[in-house]
Amino acid sequence: MNYPLHLAILVLLWGYIYTSWSLMGRLGLVSFGHGAFMGIGAYTVVMLWNHFGLSPWLGAIAAFVFSAVVAIVIGWPCFRFRIVGHYFALVTLALSEVTRLIFIAARDHTGGSLGATPNGALVDGTSASLWALQFSSKLPWLLIVTALWLFGLWVWRQVDRSMGRLALQAISEEEEAAASIGIHVTRAKLRITIISALMTCAGGILYAQYQLYVNPDTVSGIAISLQMVFGVIAGGMFVMLGPTVGAAFTLLLAEGLRLAFGNRYPALDATIYGVMLVLFIIYMPKGILGAALEGWKAARRRKAAPA
């Protein structure tokens, strides 16, 4: 019972993180830097708890402030000076890698590349501590991540229905024309970036608390950022449940590889992500769910036509 529950929690949590990424990714802001926000969430909360005994709830506030500052410091110059497309991808890629390297370099406090474990709060036989955000059973986690995932879908829908979404789509196509009709381009991009960054940060916090372990490679860096991009493209970023389908897909892939090869080839999944990313972009640009929905619609049209 624990393993399927574990998988369900991870799918929902990653589904939420991918959804958060897609809020900007599908509007032409393809970030390879979201590993940074996940990492900031995970590490800020665990470090504040371990070194100062600060509850993750308070640590989360610090992590949000920190993420917002990083999003603005990186995003504002990019948007102000029209760094888009490949250049934006490169800047954000550097961000996630720098974040990873900082976690490693600060090894005296963070445990370096060995990672760190939040100090246990469930010592005297208690099974749950809301204050420490630690639970010995998986059920509370399922409830938490389900709520978070639903929240992510709700934000997606709010964004989708807003004029702001149309404005960002217009910007991604014709930035100069968008500005000429009165759209404050820098502000529009920065707003969605901050929303996306903060949501990803929240995902990082819960991921660390659920795993009770943080590691620079699993919550930040290029690998995790690439995994997000790949997962979303695989699932489909233009439909609400696409990122969640992508999360299920990447998770099953990673688990499958782990069962088949164990830990013999540690970088194998990243390599396969890279290759599959290219294949998906070429052959299935709308992702698994996007392609499936299209196929289903086409089939219905075919059925309706001869009648």
């Binding site: 004029m163 149309l166 014709e174 100069e176 009709i181 759209i183």
Partner: peptide
């Protein structure tokens, strides 16, 4: 410089809105 991925009325409504 039309916004090709948007509908015609969305193109113009954006201008009216912003």
């Amino acid at each position: 410089k039309p916004f090709r991925k948007l509908s015609l009325v969305d193109n113009v409504a954006l201008a009216a809105f912003y």
